[in-house]
Design a protein around this nucleic acid. Structure first.
Lengths: 243, 243
DNA sequence: CCAAAAGTGTTTACTGTACACCCATGC
DNA sequence: GCATGGGTGTACAGTAAACACTTTTGG
């Protein structure tokens, strides 16, 4: 950070200029995405304190002295889910003066992708938390609706250009699940044959000899995402995932 | 922002929880892009106070109580350039604990696009400021190199999907200038005919009867970006600028 | 035997890319 | 008359999109 140019440009050279500035509270808010069966969902909590007690809200937390923002977010998510290696992306920093009527708080929004089938995940640790279909989420407090909209749009862009969908799926998944996920993220139907052809052309999945018999009588082959192969392709051949 | 789930989950319901948190200093740092003749440039300042006095740095400033981050950035840029309607995008928030060895400061990086030919712009108001070719910029203090790299990559992505190039050009420009700009942003040569065909297919420029005679003997037609037409196309026809 | 989902290729349209010559002018 | 940058169109290749029928098997 470089010293501000003050109106009269005369502050250069001061050594203790920090003291003159206004400290603020810095928080993170998390848009938590999960994929359950056929639908993309977000996790919300019912606010249990004023202002706006009883309304739905993103989950958040304050930055502490001894951590950076990624760590704040990880901490908040671990307290909520018990998982400590959740996929995160910083989204945007919200600073409207009156965004929180109670106090000036600047909030850095993150979004997180959770595999709700992760064996180590045993449900949410907070009673007031609830998963909502992405299209059926209630109104949220403060500027949280805005955050969710931006997160959805960012997830869409990102999902088209990086293989992040696999963060939301169980380790083994069917092509149908993968397609349902992408249709849910992109908000539109995809052609089954074109989708599968495209995915297969990437050559980053491993087809197992195992079938998921839970949906159809015929059963559907299971696949796993070969992350090592993907990384190797990116590095060696300049491969770019582009759906 | 939603209250943090504390380790023992027992803080819900407190009304004065804000007091328990650690306030921090929040700053902005600006990556200022300009386009001069044939090259994309960034504006840097020589730091005039410790630590790292004499080294090159981005220009920055602290968030004040009565403004949001966009306003902080606009204020800093206006003090530096005299311009008050500079194009801005928030980039990323940097929070490494020891990113500034002197004090804990979280910095929100913005990038700005400046038309250095704007008639209202009369050069930089600070002696220590200097334009650098984007590829010949010196090493910067703290994490500013990282910020610049991210800004360059973000500008690249953005320039491919939004008509932001025009923010860097004078109102009237030649096709060659536009192409030079894009080549500079994208870091690669483009085919002249393909480039012009593509741009013309968008139908968002107006060709003037006026020529720029300053470069060639033949002279090159001048164009202006028709922002209204562009906006109308976006709204009515769902037009998407995609280079 | 039938319902329900899985699996599988080809054709067509479009978009991106490569490519070379003449034009206008000032000196 | 020549050097310099300006202006223009076509052919080919590769990618995206549309499209329908057969297979499997539990009930």
């Amino acid at each position: 950070m470089e010293k501000d140019l003050d109106e009269d440009n005369n502050l250069f050279g001061k050594s203790n200029y920090f003291q003159e500035e206004d400290p603020v509270l810095l928080a993170v808010d998390c848009i938590i995405f999960g994929f359950d069966k056929k639908n993309l969902k977000i996790l919300l909590v019912k606010r249990s304190f004023e202002p706006d007690m009883g309304k739905w809200s993103l989950i958040g937390g304050f930055l502490k002295k001894n951590e950076n923002l990624d760590q704040t977010t990880s901490r908040v998510l671990e307290n909520l889910t018990g998982l400590n290696d959740i996929y995160l992306e910083q989204l945007y920093t919200y600073s409207r003066i009156d965004r929180d009527p109670a106090q000036r708080i600047i909030s850095v929004a993150y979004y997180a992708l959770i595999d709700v089938n992760d064996s180590r995940y045993n449900g949410i640790k907070v009673d007031s938390a609830q998963w909502f279909d992405i299209d059926k989420a209630p109104n949220l407090i403060l500027d949280h609706n805005e955050m969710v909209e931006k997160a959805k749009s960012s997830l869409k862009k990102y999902a088209l250009n990086r293989p992040i969908g696999f963060e939301l799926l169980p380790e083994k998944f069917t092509m149908r699940q993968l397609q349902d996920l992408y249709e849910s993220i992109l908000g539109k139907k995809l052609d089954k044959r074109n989708f599968i052809n495209k995915i297969n052309s990437f050559d980053i999945l491993v087809k197992l000899d195992e079938k998921d018999m839970s949906v159809s009588r015929k059963g559907a082959y299971l696949y796993i995402f070969d992350k090592d192969k993907y990384n190797k392709k990116v590095e060696e051949d300049g491969f770019i995932f582009k759906l």
